[in-house]
Design a binder for these strands. Structure first.
Length: 918
RNA sequence: GCCUUGGUGGUGGAAUUGGUAGACACGCAGGACUUAAAAUCCUGUGAUCAUUGCGAUCGUGCGGGUUCAAGUCCCGCCCGAGGUACCA
C-alpha cells in the first residue's frame, strides 16, 4: 500500500477539528505551558514558504510538551490593524475591514493545510471591538496613572492630585516632563484647565507637543522603529521632522526596569544587547555653566566630567530653548538663517549629509571649574532630545567635537598625557590626566569620580543617569487603528468612562485627510459624545494592539476584564515566544513596558511577559537566472554563457527544477519569450542561481500550498526543519525536499508491504531496541535545545537502520510513531491508529529512553601517532587504560608505524582515542 | 564607526565537554529492475598525487599561538549578513 499523504492529511485534519483535539482549558491538575508565535499581519500576498518556519518549530515544541503531560496553550490570531490595508483603501476605495477579512481568510486557509495544533477558539483580531476594547481600556489606565519614583511603580493619578492638594509638588517624587515646582495653595488656586494641563506632565499616557517623524506621503507620524535610513519601512517614503501635538506613552519612566528585567529572562545575548543599546543608559554629570553677563545658567550633560579642563566651546541643539535666549543681536540674523536651514532638512538628508555645520551665537559661557570664557555655538550635531540639548565640547577627546573644532578653527586642548590629537581626537576612556589642575595625575575613571564629587560639593551640578530610550509617540493620523477613548472639553482631553467601551471605529467613505488637514476621522459623522464633545481624531499605532495580545489569549472571550484573575494566575506568562528579530526594538520593548504597567496595576502576576524567546532565522529566496544574448531572442545555458555577451534575467523558480529550465513552460511564462531560442548543454538549459530576498519581483516566491499539494504537509514540516538551524537565516531550495518524502515513504514501508499491512507482535532484537532508544534520546535532547534539523537526521538514520533490519515489530514502531508526532502529526496519527489505538496520538505519552539499550559492548578506538589517526581497533567497553595501551603497543600495525622508534608519551582517552607520541 | 552574528565539499548542513572533520540529505556518476520512462534499490562521491592493491599529502576564511591532540580555546586580520547611527 502506498503512502497517500493527501488522503491521510485530509482525514486527520477533519478528525482533529471534529473532536476539538486542540481545544485547551484551564486544568489545575496539569502543569501549564504557554507557547506563542508572533501573530502575523495578514498581508495581501499570503504566506510564502518562509513564514511557517517559526510556526512549525513552535508547533513541534507545543506537541512535544503536550506529549510530556503539559497543558499547552498554543494560540494564534491576527495583528489586523495597519497601514497597508488603509493604503489599499485609499487607492481602490475598498474598505480596510473588507480587505483585512479576506486576507485573514486566506491566511487561515494556508495555515490549516499545514496541520498546526492551534486552539482556534482563542483567536484574536486586533481590529475587533471586543478585542480593542481592552486596548482602549489599557490606555485609560495609563492616562489615569503617573510614575512614582519612590515606589518605583505606576500609581493612580488621584494620589498625585491629593498630594498636590495637600502639599504641592514638594512631597512628590514622580517622573515629570519638565521641572515643576508649586505649592499647595498655588495648586488649589488653579483653574480646572490649568490643573489638567499640569497633570499632563505626569500621566503615563499624555498629550504633548513633540518633535515627530512625519511622513507626508503616508500623511502620518511614524515611530523610530517604523523608519529605516530616513524612509518609512512601509512604502519607502521620505520622513521629516515636525512638531505636533501627540499622545505619547511614558515608556522612558520604565527605562531602568526594562533594563534590569533583561537579566531575569531567557533571551539570546544578542537580542538583550540590542535592547540594552536601545535603552542606552549612561551615567554622567549634569553641570551648570554660567552665561557671561546673564543671570541664568546653561545646563549640560556629560559622561566625561574628567575632561572639564579641555572644554573649549559649548554647543546647543538648534531646537534648544537656550538658543534664542543667548543669541546676541549681532548674531541673531545668522542664527535664524541657520535654524531655518536645519528645519528644512529631512531626516534622510541629515543622515546622508554628515558635513559639519553650525553658527556662533555671539554669547560666551564660563567654565565653572576653570572660570575661563568659552564661545557658545549652535549645531545640529547636538540632539535636542538627549540629555539637556546642550553640551560642553571637548574636541581633544570627542570625535564629533573634534570635527567641529577643526572646521571652525576652535582651539583643541588635550587633557590626557601623551595623546596625539593633531590628526584625530583621542576618544578612549583611559590614560592619565594632564593640563587639568587638581585632576592631574589621576586616571580617567578616578578623574570622573573626582570631578563628580567636586561639582556636587561646589553646587555646580549633579550626578545624573540618562537614557536614550524615548517615550513612544502614540498618535497616528490614520483611520485603520484603534480610536482613542478620549473627548475634548474646551480643548482639554478627558478619557471616557470604562463603561462606554469599546468606542467603536466609525464608518467613513473617504480615507484621506480632510480638506483642513485633519486625520481621516474628521470625515466621520457625529464623531462626538452624546453631550456633543468631540472625540479624538487620531487613532492608535500598530504596536497598541500587539502589546498585550498574549494576555488576551488566556481569556479571549472575557467581557469583564482583559484577563480574569483565574486565567492570569494559571497561565501566568509566555514560556516560549517565537518570532523574528525585527521586533527587537519595537514590539518587544513596548510589550514589556505595557506588561510592567499592568503588573503595577495588579492586573497581571508576572512583570516580564516572555520568559524564553527564540528568533527564527529568515528564509531567503533562491533565485534562478536565464542568460539572454544581448540584442537577440536567444538564451544560452549557464556554462556556455562566457562565450557571449549576456544579460541575466530572473526566471520563475517554479518552472525550474534542479536548475534545469522547463523550456516549454518558460515560453508560456511570458509573451515576450514565446519565440525564444536556446543554446543548450547536454540537451538541457541550465540556469544560474543566487540567494536573494524572497519576493515577487525576484520570481523566487514559493507558496506552501504548492508544496503541500505536491509533497504533503508532513513533508513540508520536516523539510523546513531539515533546512538548517532554526535561528539561522538560510535559503529555501525546493530541490532537497525529495529526500524527506523518500524518508516518509520508507517509514511507511516499515508498516506496509506493497500489498498489505504487515506488523508483528514479536519481541524486538537488541539492535532494534538500540536504534529506537538512540533516537528517543537524541530527539528528546534536540527538541529541548531547539535543534530540530539534527532530529530530522536522527529520524532518517533510525528509519534507515530499521529498514535494513526489516523491522516490523509493534513494540518498536509504537514509540517511534509517538516521537514522530510533533514533526509529522498526520502520518503519525494514521500509523498510530494502524497500530491499533483508537484515541489521538496527541494524547499519547512521550517515551523515555533506557540507557541499558544504548550500552556498547565494544568501543572503537582511533589509534593515532603524533596526532595523526592511522587505523582503528575495537576493544571491550570496560577495558582499562593500561590494558588498552598494552594491546595497542603490541599491535602489528603499531610496530610497523613505530619502526623501532622509542615512545615519548601515550595518551589513552577511554572509549575514544589513543595517541602515541614518538 | 559601533553592536550582534556567521564563514566547513558542487549545494543545505553535521560534529553536546578540545579526541577519527564532512553525519543526514540534495545533486552528480555508475549499476540493477524495465520494451522504455518514472518510481524503487545498490555502489561511489572533499582535493591532489598514486592507482595493481596498499596508500601518501593537503584540507573547516587568512596569519600566528596554546596542546599529545584545535572546526572547537587564545591573539591579530579579512570577508558576508542583520541591527544601529552624531546619545556627549
Amino acid at each position: 500500500m502506498e503512502y497517500n499523504f493527501k488522503e491521510i492529511e485530509k482525514k486527520w485534519q477533519n478528525y482533529w477539528k471534529n473532536n476539538s483535539t486542540y481545544k485547551v482549558e484551564i486544568n489545575k491538575n496539569k502543569p501549564k505551558y504557554y507557547v506563542l508565535d508572533m501573530f502575523p499581519y495578514p498581508s495581501g500576498a499570503g504566506l510564502h514558504v518562509g513564514h511557517p518556519l517559526g510556526y512549525i518549530a513552535s508547533d513541534i515544541f507545543s506537541r512535544y510538551k503536550r506529549l510530556q503531560g503539559f497543558n499547552v496553550l498554543h494560540p494564534m490570531g491576527y495583528d489586523s490593524y495597519g497601514l497597508p490595508a488603509e493604503q489599499y483603501a485609499i487607492q481602490t476605495g475598498q474598505h480596510p475591514a473588507v480587505t483585512t477579512g479576506k486576507n485573514i481568510a486566506r491566511y487561515r486557509e494556508q495555515l490549516d493545510k499545514i496541520g498546526f495544533c492551534y486552539d482556534w477558539s482563542r483567536e484574536v483580531r486586533t481590529c475587533e471591538p471586543n478585542y480593542y476594547k481592552w486596548t482602549q481600556w489599557a490606555f485609560i489606565q495609563m492616562f489615569n496613572s503617573y510614575y512614582d519614583n519612590d515606589q518605583d511603580k505606576a500609581m493612580p493619578i488621584s494620589n498625585l492630585i491629593l498630594k498636590f492638594h495637600q502639599s504641592g509638588s514638594e512631597s512628590v517624587n514622580a517622573v515629570c516632563s519638565s521641572d515643576l515646582s508649586f505649592t499647595a495653595s498655588e495648586w488649589n488656586a488653579m483653574s480646572e484647565k490649568e490643573q489638567q494641563n499640569l497633570l499632563m506632565n505626569y500621566r503615563i499616557a499624555y498629550l504633548a507637543d513633540t518633535k515627530v517623524n512625519f511622513c507626508p506621503a503616508l500623511g502620518c507620524v511614524l515611530a523610530n522603529d517604523e523608519i529605516s535610513e530616513g524612509l518609512s519601512i512601509r512604502g519607502g517614503h521620505p520622513v521629516e521632522q515636525r512638531v505636533m501635538r501627540q499622545w505619547s506613552l511614558r515608556v522612558s519612566a520604565y527605562a531602568q526596569r526594562l533594563l534590569d528585567g533583561l537579566d531575569r529572562i531567557d533571551w539570546t545575548d544578542s537580542l538583550k544587547e540590542t535592547q540594552r543599546n536601545w535603552i542606552g543608559r549612561s551615567e554622567g554629570t549634569e553641570m551648570n555653566f554660567k552665561v557671561k553677563d546673564k543671570l541664568y545658567d546653561l545646563e549640560i550633560f556629560t559622561t566625561r566630567a574628567d575632561t572639564i579642563f579641555g572644554v573649549t566651546f559649548m554647543v546647543l541643539a538648534p531646537e534648544s530653548e537656550y538658543v534664542s535666549k543667548v543669541t546676541t543681536d549681532a548674531q541673531r540674523a545668522a542664527v535664524d538663517e541657520y535654524l531655518n536651514q536645519v528645519k528644512r532638512r529631512t531626516e534622510r538628508e541629515r543622515i546622508s549629509d554628515r558635513r559639519v555645520s553650525g553658527v556662533f551665537t555671539g554669547a560666551y559661557a564660563i567654565n565653572p571649574v576653570t572660570e575661563k570664557e568659552i564661545p557658545i555655538w549652535v549645531s545640529d550635531y547636538v540632539l535636542s532630545g538627549y540629555g539637556t540639548g546642550a553640551i560642553m565640547a571637548v574636541p581633544a577627546h570627542d570625535s564629533r567635537d573634534y570635527a567641529f573644532a577643526k572646521h571652525f578653527k576652535l582651539p583643541i586642548i588635550p587633557v590626557i598625557e601623551g595623546c596625539d590629537v593633531s590628526q584625530e581626537s583621542f576618544d578612549a576612556k583611559d590614560g592619565v590626566m594632564a593640563n587639568s589642575g587638581f585632576l592631574n595625575g589621576l586616571k580617567v575613571k578616578e578623574a570622573i569620580a573626582a570631578t563628580k564629587k567636586y561639582v556636587k560639593e561646589k553646587g555646580i551640578g549633579k550626578v545624573k543617569v540618562n537614557y536614550r530610550l524615548r517615550d513612544a509617540i502614540f498618535s497616528r493620523q490614520r483611520y485603520w487603528g484603534e480610536p482613542f477613548p478620549v473627548y475634548y472639553k474646551e480643548g482639554v482631553p478627558y478619557v471616557l468612562d470604562e463603561s462606554k467601551l469599546p468606542l467603536m471605529l466609525p464608518e467613513i467613505e473617504n480615507f484621506l485627510p480632510t480638506a483642513s488637514g485633519e486625520p481621516p476621522l474628521g470625515h466621520a459623522k457625529n464623531w462626538n459624545t452624546p453631550e456633543g464633545y468631540p472625540y479624538e481624531l487620531n487613532t492608535m499605532p500598530g504596536f497598541a494592539g500587539s502589546s498585550a495580545y498574549y494576555l488576551r489569549y488566556m481569556d479571549p472571550h472575557n467581557d469583564e476584564a482583559l484577563v480574569s484573575k483565574e486565567a492570569d494566575e494559571y497561565w501566568q506568562n509566555v514560556d516560549l515566544y517565537l518570532g523574528g528579530t525585527e521586533h527587537a526594538t519595537g514590539h518587544l520593548i513596548y510589550s514589556r513596558f505595557w506588561n510592567k504597567f499592568l503588573f503595577d496595576m495588579g492586573v497581571v502576576c508576572k512583570d516580564e511577559p516572555f520568559h524564553k524567546l527564540i528568533n527564527q532565522g529568515m528564509i531567503q529566496g533562491r533565485s534562478n537566472f536565464v542568460y539572454r544574448i544581448k540584442d537577440t531572442d536567444t538564451f544560452v545555458s549557464y556554462n556556455l554563457k562566457e562565450k557571449y555577451e549576456v544579460t541575466p534575467i530572473h526566471v520563475d523558480v517554479n518552472i525550474v527544477s534542479n536548475d534545469i529550465l522547463d523550456i516549454e513552460k518558460f515560453k508560456n511564462w511570458s509573451p515576450d519569450y514565446k519565440s525564444a531560442e536556446f543554446i543548450l548543454e547536454d540537451g538541457k538549459y541550465v540556469c544560474g542561481w543566487a540567494v536573494e530576498k524572497m519576493s515577487k519581483s525576484m520570481f523566487n516566491v514559493v507558496n506552501p500550498d504548492d508544496i503541500v499539494d505536491r509533497y504533503g504537509a508532513d513533508t513540508l514540516r520536516f523539510y523546513e526543519m531539515f533546512l538548517g538551524p532554526l535561528e539561522q537565516s538560510k535559503p529555501w531550495d525546493t530541490n532537497g525536499i525529495d529526500g524527506v518524502l523518500r524518508f516518509l515513504k520508507k517509514l511507511w514501508g516499515l508498516f506496509y508491504t506493497r500489498e498489505s499491512l504487515c506488523l508483528s507482535d514479536e519481541e524486538p532484537t537488541k539492535d532494534e531496541l538500540k536504534s529506537l532508544h538512540k533516537l528517543i534520546k537524541k530527539v528528546t535532547y534536540d527538541i529541548e535545545n531547539f535543534s530540530f534539523n539534527t532530529s530530522v537526521a536522527a529520524f532518517m538514520i533510525c528509519v534507515n537502520e530499521l529498514s535494513s533490519l526489516k523491522c516490523n515489530k509493534k513494540k518498536i514502531l509504537d514509540p517511534l510513531t509517538i516521537i514522530l508526532t510533533p514533526f509529522a502529526p498526520h502520518i503519525a496519527e494514521e500509523l498510530y491508529h494502524t497500530l491499533g489505538h483508537n484515541t489521538t496520538v496527541c494524547d499519547a505519552q512521550w517515551p523515555d529512553y533506557d540507557e541499558q539499550y544504548l550500552k556498547e559492548d565494544l568501543k572503537k578506538y582511533a589509534i593515532s601517532f603524533n596526532g595523526k589517526v592511522k587505523f582503528s581497533i575495537e576493544f571491550p567497553a570496560d577495558m582499562d587504560k593500561d590494558e588498552v595501551e598494552k594491546q595497542v603497543m603490541a599491535n602489528e600495525q603499531t610496530v610497523k608505524i613505530m619502526d623501532g622508534n622509542p615512545t615519548k608519551k601515550i595518551i589513552v582517552v577511554p572509549g575514544k582515542i589513543v595517541n602515541i607520541v614518538f
